[in-house]
């Protein structure tokens, strides 16, 4: 969870999302276990330091909190980190967004589901969309494994599977599906009370309330719909983890999984109209859409209800590719892919 983006369009949107998260638990009356324990990004070279200075200052100019740290300050914050000059990739500093942190993802889904249900929203589980019936005014019939549903307006929010629905509707998207893996270790006593990201080591890690380390890395770098991921990426991510924290070398991993994510060239979501007049798009979140949920949902509802873009997502339309108005937000992916 963070809003450490570079460009004003992204900063405005993700900062709004973070603010909504700050009061989401109360609004849903559900403990989403939001912990603003800070999100620390490490610098391992003078180059990193320079680009982080630019990045952290861009955040401040956008009204988002960020603080630059030197090696001693990083070492004090994360004692388990190998900050010695002889480290394979010596830590030369970093920057922290203190309002960043972690949220329990299941709790967000459960909290939203309960609140939506209470408002009268029908949530139909285990129901796959298998096709659409197209007429002159657009798509008004959704075919599913549990029958046919009529709809005045349709929103596609199926992440890594959005192009399969677009294929059914007959249009193309600027998107490729990749597997992104994550790992959870056996529980440890408290050792890490912030989120640590090292782009150079290709890894990020935090400790859950149950004591497990939650570890992630880069994508498996070829298209995939297989929800498991491959071993070279496991090796690379865990190698990165041990480069930063040699003391974790005896740790066993309890769980590993991969989700299919929808990656766009400029790492900015696609939210707005589709080529079909009554079908709307909410996709392209890639590896970073969890932090966007409250704002993405809000702006998507606005877009569908009013048939026009919300000001916060007006720049995220599908038309930006032909106009060359890309928002090349490498920070969206958190780590360089």
């Amino acid at each position: 969870m963070r809003s450490n983006y570079l460009f004003p369009e992204s900063a405005r949107f993700y900062e709004h999302s973070l603010r909504l998260y700050e009061r989401l638990g109360r609004e849903l009356d559900f403990n989403i276990m939001f912990s603003q324990r800070g999100m620390l990004t490490l610098a391992h070279s003078r180059h990193d330091l320079e680009s982080q200075r630019r990045w952290a200052n861009a955040m401040r100019l956008n009204g988002v909190d960020s603080e630059l740290l030197d090696t001693d300050e990083v070492a004090e914050l994360v004692p388990a980190l190998d900050c010695s000059p002889s480290a394979r990739l010596p830590v030369m500093g970093g920057f922290i967004q203190k309002r960043g942190g972690t949220v329990r993802h299941d709790a967000v889904a459960w909290g939203y589901a309960r609140a939506a249900d209470a408002l009268g929203v029908d949530i139909i589980q285990n129901c796959e969309v298998t096709g659409f019936e197209l007429s002159s005014g657009g798509a008004h019939t959704v075919k599913t494994t549990r029958g046919t549903i009529g709809a005045d307006r349709i929103g596609l929010a199926t992440a890594g599977h959005t192009t399969t629905l677009a294929d059914m509707l007959g249009f193309r998207l600027p998107m490729t599906s990749y597997a992104l893996q994550a790992f959870v270790s056996e529980p440890l006593k408290p050792v890490l009370d912030t989120v640590v990201l090292s782009p150079a080591c290709g890894v990020y890690v935090s400790q859950s309330d149950k004591g497990e380390l939650v570890v992630g890395g880069g994508l498996d770098l070829y298209a995939s719909y297989a929800q498991r991921g491959n071993l070279p990426t496991v090796e690379q991510t865990l190698r990165g983890l041990l480069t930063l924290f040699p003391s974790f070398s005896r740790l066993r991993m309890l769980r590993q999984w991969a989700g299919i994510v929808d990656v766009v060239a400029d790492s900015t979501p696609v939210l707005g109209r589709s080529p079909i007049p009554n079908v709307f798009l909410n996709c392209g979140w890639g590896t970073g859409g969890f932090k966007a949920i409250p704002a993405g949902g809000w702006c998507f509802a606005h877009t569908i209800a009013k048939n026009e873009a919300h000001p916060l997502t007006a720049a995220f339309g599908l038309d930006r590719f032909a106009r060359g108005a890309l928002i090349d937000e490498a920070a969206a992916s958190g780590i360089a892919h």
């Binding site: 998207l173 600027p174 032909a322």
Partner: peptide, 20 residues
């Protein structure tokens, strides 16, 4: 511009066989 955007950014992304 649309044709160029399609060439540069848009991809077939089938859940099945890809040619890469």
């Amino acid at each position: 511009d649309d044709a160029w955007a399609d060439y540069v950014f848009f991809r077939t992304n089938p859940m099945g066989v890809t040619f890469e």
